[in-house]
Nucleic acid binder design. Structure first.
Length: 583
RNA sequence: GCGCCCGUAGCUCAGUUGGAUAGAGCAGCGGACUUCUAAUCCGCAGGUCGAGGGUUCGAAUCCUUCCGGGCGCGCCA
């Protein structure tokens, strides 16, 4: 149980009692009533802004209302004191047993601790990666991949029914280019001499294997035919092969999507036509002429009538084109159908994870989703800023020729999937991220992956040492521990921090910001390392207490709590907690 | 030109979605190892939260106008 939401309920009960007594008016909006951790520990354990946010609608002065609230709160079980502070804050001090009970909850729940039901089982679709099926994933894809996967896990932890989805852009011109590139490699595999890959085709050697496969499977069947006859077949084979590479890359990162949706199938099933017909019937599609973009004007700009969607009616700046000059659908058109499709599949909440270069696309997609679901679906587009790859502080030049690695797989092979995953979450998604190959494998406080893992490993280390000191301890020394022996302020402070975990999960899930998990774990690790070292100066604070197995067990229970919460957080991040850092 | 994101300590960034005296890490300075792994910890110093105006009990957070940086701006996805 989350202490903060528990006491928020208590506060609201006190408010409702005052309403019943006609001290407060009916119909107050309680949504803004919040329970927080006070800035200063000296202020108490919890604080609420209830008196301040309810004062005006109640026609009372904040401090007068606070006085009435504190009377009620003082009677709540577990409350030691409730005091008014500053402009009308109420600071609440809780009985130590409340916190010990929290620790008990953690030990009982294990890594399930922090799970929440705020999601209420609602279906959420998280669409991420969705890289074009034209080659293996590169470093640019790493951030969105990890972000999307961890956001999905976070939402699951918060009680949502999450679907991880990948949208395969297999309908545009790029996959035709892919097919031509593969055909060339196919001819090469059949013995033709290919000197240079022509401009505009994909040069990567990863296509050679596909060419060879085709040659083996089909012989020279496609070799001399005109393009129109081999293109669809070879395109299909090539896309399957590329998606195979993509899945392998994702698997190496520990990512697995539940659903892969093909743009081509959506188009071929007539989905795009149906959805856009619907929009046309509502008068949201028309033929018009767009102003050319000001400032940077394309050389080949030519004003002409286009099929446009009335995005401006749904918050966009200009109406957006749906058809290319060759009369085929734009990417935007099929993406409208895709978001409608997701809605029809039951996703009232949709999250798209995109790269920074797609930022300019957000408004039109939100507008379209609003239009096509008539406001019923909620779309949140998360933009991940770029990752700057560094080595010892110097930018890594991304050159295929120079042999500096650029693929996601190379990155994973270099530092391991856990490091990639953790580091990708050490910044907010809208902040650019420096990924320093040297720093991320360093063993120092500057490297958050190490720092958090070290805390977890230390927890195990204490257990190992304790069992050497006390032969009667089992591998679960915390079993039957008397938590009441935990009396020191520093110990309680650590437990209070652990008790914030459910709240961190809820707020991170609500904000769709998985990086908050990483920051919290870093803070928890810092608190634990601090307490550890304190035991050096004040030996009475050591976890392992000579000749006192009972106290040792209590403290090991607390250590177990730290270990559990860290493991619970790393689990969301998809990072394996380590038990030992050096062998 | 327009839109989106960003601007917080020398550097890199958090800031619980409007709360109390704005926080970490790195770099700098000063300390703590006959250890439950010092791969760590403690302390000091460092700020007109880009600038101005507004909203209110209260603003780094919301609105507005500028300044600076990044990304994008029909027939790529």
């Amino acid at each position: 149980m989350d202490i903060f939401s528990e006491f928020r309920k208590e506060i609201i009960q006190v408010v409702e009692r005052l309403v019943a007594e006609s001290v407060l008016p009916e119909g107050l909006d309680l949504a803004r009533v919040a329970v927080d951790v006070p800035r200063e520990a000296a202020f108490g354990d919890l604080s609420t802004n209830a008196a301040m946010v309810l004062a005006k609608p109640s026609g009372m002065k904040p401090r007068d209302l606070a006085a009435r609230l504190t009377e009620g709160l003082a009677a709540v079980r577990g409350v030691v004191s409730a005091e008014i502070a500053g402009p009308g804050f109420i600071n609440i001090r809780l009985d130590r047993n409340i916190w010990l009970r929290c620790l008990g909850d953690i030990l009982e729940a294990g890594t399930a601790y922090g799970s929440s039901k705020i999601g209420g089982g609602d279906a959420v679709n998280v669409e991420f990666v969705s890289a074009n099926p034209t080659g293996p994933l590169h470093i640019g894809h790493a951030r969105g991949s990890v972000f999307g996967d961890v956001l999905a896990s976070l939402l699951e932890k918060a009680g949502y029914a999450v679907t991880r989805e990948y949208y395969i852009n297999d309908a545009g011109a790029q996959v035709d280019v892919l097919a031509r590139s593969v055909h060339l490699r196919y001819r090469e595999a059949l013995g033709e001499k290919i000197d240079q890959i022509p401009e505009g085709l994909y040069p990567g050697d990863y296509l050679c294997a596909v060419g060879a496969l085709l040659a083996e499977r089909s012989g020279d069947r496609w070799q001399r035919l005109p393009e129109a006859e081999w293109l669809p077949e070879i395109r299909g084979v090539a896309i399957d092969a590329m998606m195979g590479l993509v899945r392998e890359d994702l698997a190496a990162l520990g990512i697995r999507h539940d659903v892969f949706t093909s743009e081509r199938q959506l188009v071929e099933a007539g989905k795009v036509d149906t959805v856009l017909e619907g929009l046309a019937k509502r008068g949201l599609i028309y033929t018009g002429v767009l102003e050319p973009p000001k400032g940077k004007k394309p050389d080949d700009w030519e004003s002409r009538p286009q099929t446009l969607f009335r995005a401006t009616e749904f918050g966009d700046e200009v109406d957006r084109p749906l058809k290319k000059s060759d009369d085929s659908w734009t990417y935007f058109a099929s993406d409208i159908a895709y978001h409608q499709d997701k809605y029809e599949r039951g996703f009232g909440t949709q999250i798209d994870v995109w790269g920074a270069d797609h930022g300019g696309y957000v408004k039109r997609m939100s507008a379209a989703t609003k239009a096509v679901t008539e406001g019923a679906a909620e779309l949140d587009v998360k933009i991940c800023q770029i990752v700057k790859l560094l080595d010892k502080g110097e930018p890594v030049k991304m050159s295929k020729r120079a042999g500096t690695f650029v693929t996601l797989r190379d990155l994973i092979d270099e530092v391991g999937p856990d490091v990639v995953r953790f580091i990708m979450l050490t910044r907010s998604n809208d902040a650019p991220l420096d990924f320093d190959l040297t720093k991320v494998t360093e063993q120092s406080r500057d490297n958050p992956v190490f720092y958090v893992q070290y805390a977890h490993a230390r927890c195990h280390s204490v257990n190992r040492m304790a069992r050497e000191a006390f032969s009667e301890l089992t591998d679960k020394p915390e079993d039957g521990a008397n938590l009441d022996l935990l009396t020191h302020d520093a110990e309680l402070a650590l437990i209070k921090l652990m008790a914030q975990w459910p709240r961190v999960v809820e707020s991170a899930a609500h904000a769709h910001e998985p990086h908050r998990i990483a920051y919290y774990l870093y803070d928890l690790a810092a608190a634990f390392h601090g307490l550890w070292t304190k035991g050096k100066e004040q030996t009475e604070l050591r976890f392992i207490v000579e000749n006192n197995v009972e106290l040792t067990k209590s403290r090991l229970a607390m250590v177990r709590g730290v270990r559990t919460v860290i493991a619970s957080g790393l689990d969301i991040m998809g990072v394996e907690p380590v038990e030992e850092l050096r062998g």
